[in-house]
């Protein structure tokens, strides 16, 4: 039975259209113009227990809005969802007890007291037995290497240390589902890797289900086997990360090392993306790779040849811009 099931989730906002200038501001006092903005449209997917799934999409694609509907913070305009067996926006206590939400750009720890005080309050709110709480806290502080920082005022912690504390707060009640919205945003590479490692280790230990949004491909590659790509509020891909290239990649990268220097007419075989000594990179349409290679090998002496997919980030950037797959998902 899926831990998350979303069916046709749609969220439309009514936003005010501000008119320019002072006169416009006065007009707005008695007559306002509104526009309907569809943040998420007809999104359907399901996630099984224990999966680690990434939500990929450009800014404003609808990732966070979907996460917020799944965590019960906002009501959908239409569609339905079941998370951990509950309708999330009814916000049953039994539902809220079983999941956590971490937002990289927001703090849930109370400032300025030390994080340890926030954790104690957390224990009261979630009615956690003291022995369980102490054991989980010890496990998490050890996992994240912050045993000595919990008594330090939160405002005196670095951004990376604070995010570790946020993660601890989110995991103290041992949720079955963890929703993460940009958990590594603004962190340096060392802190990013530490957070990724913690999430991976925690998943290995507890089998918690994770749904993650991130702009950092490293997060996605390090953590998630499955990716949901959403652009302009619509889900355009649901499958393994490696499948994105097959689904969206129109071209291949052909690298050739010529025996007698790069021929002058090389650009008629494809788009030249790099030249270095006798080596050239050509972007060639996927369906024409064999034909192009045969033609080149027929005309020129080639010492070395390789055919690869273009970097994943390039493909994803193109998906974000175009928002449509090249053919239907399998």
């Amino acid at each position: 039975m899926p831990i998350i099931r979303a069916e046709g989730l749609t969220k439309t906002y009514r936003v005010t259209q501000k008119q320019d200038g002072l006169l416009g501001a006065f007009k707005g006092l008695y007559r306002r113009e509104y526009k309907e903005v569809r943040a998420v449209g007809d999104v359907s997917f399901s996630i099984e227990p224990g999966e680690m799934v990434a939500f990929l999409g450009p800014n404003g694609a609808g990732k966070t809005t979907t996460l917020k509907m799944l965590s019960g913070l906002i009501y959908p305009t239409s569609g339905s969802a079941e998370v951990l067996g509950f309708v999330p926006w009814r916000r049953d206590d039994a539902f809220r007890r079983q999941f956590s939400l971490v937002m990289g750009q927001k703090n849930q720890l109370w400032w300025p007291p030390p994080a340890a005080d926030s954790f104690q309050l957390h224990r009261e709110i979630y009615s956690l037995p003291k022995a369980d709480f102490d054991r989980t806290l010890a496990e998490l502080t050890e996992l994240l290497g912050v045993e000595k920082l919990t008594r330090q005022a939160v405002r005196e912690l670095s951004l990376g240390e604070r995010m570790k504390m946020e993660l601890i707060a989110a995991l103290l009640h041992q949720p079955r589902l963890l929703l993460l919205d940009e958990p590594t945003i603004g962190l340096d590479v060392v802190a990013q890797v530490a957070i990724q490692k913690c999430l991976r280790d925690y998943h290995a230990r507890r089998g918690v289900t994770m749904l993650l949004t991130s702009h950092y491909m490293r997060d996605i590659e390090a953590l998630c086997d499955r990716v949901l790509v959403i652009t302009h509020g619509t889900l355009v891909y649901d499958g393994p990360l490696s499948g994105i290239t097959g689904m969206f990649g129109l071209s291949k990268l052909v690298r050739l090392q010529f025996a007698e220097g790069i021929p002058d007419d090389v650009d008629r075989f494809g788009e030249v993306t790099r030249r270095e000594g006798p080596t050239v990179d050509l972007k060639v349409e996927r369906s024409k790779v064999a034909e192009v290679l045969a033609a080149i090998l027929d005309l020129h002496a080639v010492d070395d040849v390789s055919v690869t997919d273009p970097p994943l980030e390039q493909t994803i950037a193109r998906v974000f811009q175009e928002g449509r797959p090249t053919h239907d998902a399998a």
Binding site: A94, R96, L101, M103, K106, N107, I125, Y126
Partner: peptide, 18 residues
């Protein structure tokens, strides 16, 4: 305004109380 209300609404406790 800031959206920080999110972290109060996800707690398993009466929202009005919190």
């Amino acid at each position: 305004r800031t959206g920080d209300l999110d972290f109060l609404l996800i707690r398993p406790i009466d929202e009005q109380f919190l």
